[in-house]
Amino acid sequence: MVEQLAEKHTLKQWRLLRGLTQKELAASIGITDKTLSLYEHDIEAFRKIPYERLR
């Protein structure tokens, strides 16, 4: 049996593969499209968000 490895994708690649706009994905997870754009372009900004803001 051959195991298939999952490809690694960035958040933007994942979104585009599923045919979603930033607005659509952002609305589905309860954030603004501006916030999603920031997450797609600056992973360090995402990592610095206090846990309390993510709940």
Rank of each mutant, 00 (worst) to 15 (best):
I29K: 01
D33S: 15
R53Y: 06
Y39C: 04
L17E: 13
Q4L: 15
T32F: 08
Q4P: 07
D42C: 07
M1Q: 06
Q22M: 06
E52F: 11
E52K: 12
Q13L: 02
T32C: 06
D33P: 09
E44W: 06
T10R: 09
H9G: 04
E3A: 13
L20K: 05
L17R: 13
R15M: 02
I31A: 01
L17Q: 15
K8R: 15
H41F: 03
L11M: 08
R47F: 08
D42I: 04
F46W: 12
R55S: 08
G30K: 04
I49H: 04
R15Y: 00
R18M: 03
L25S: 00
T21M: 05
E7F: 07
H41D: 01
A26D: 01
V2R: 15
K12T: 02
L11D: 01
K8F: 07
L25A: 01
R47N: 10
A6C: 06
Q4C: 08
R55M: 08
K23T: 12
T32P: 04
E24G: 00
E7Y: 05
L5S: 13
Y51Q: 15
Y39P: 04
E40V: 07
L11I: 07
E40L: 11
W14F: 12
L25I: 03
T32D: 07
G19M: 05
H41C: 03
D42R: 10
G30L: 05
K23M: 11
E24A: 03
I31E: 00
S28I: 02
S37C: 12
G30N: 09
P50S: 05
I43V: 15
R53G: 03
K12F: 02
Q22L: 06
H9Q: 11
S28Y: 02
V2N: 14
Q22T: 01
P50L: 05
H41M: 06
E44H: 10
D33E: 15
K8D: 07
V2Q: 15
R53N: 09
A6W: 04
E52A: 14
E40Q: 12
A27T: 08
T35I: 10
A6P: 05
L16C: 06
T10N: 08
E7S: 11
L16K: 14
T21R: 05
H41N: 12
R55I: 07
L36W: 01
L25E: 01
Y39M: 09
G30Y: 06
A45T: 12
R18S: 03
Y39A: 09
R18Q: 10
E7W: 05
R18C: 03
M1Y: 09
T35D: 04
G19K: 05
S37H: 14
L36T: 01
S28E: 09
E24S: 02
E24N: 01
L11Y: 04
I49P: 02
K48Y: 06
W14S: 08
H41V: 02
H41I: 02
M1A: 14
S37T: 13
R18L: 08
H9S: 08
K8Q: 10
L17I: 11
Q13A: 09
F46R: 15
R18F: 04
L36V: 04
V2W: 09
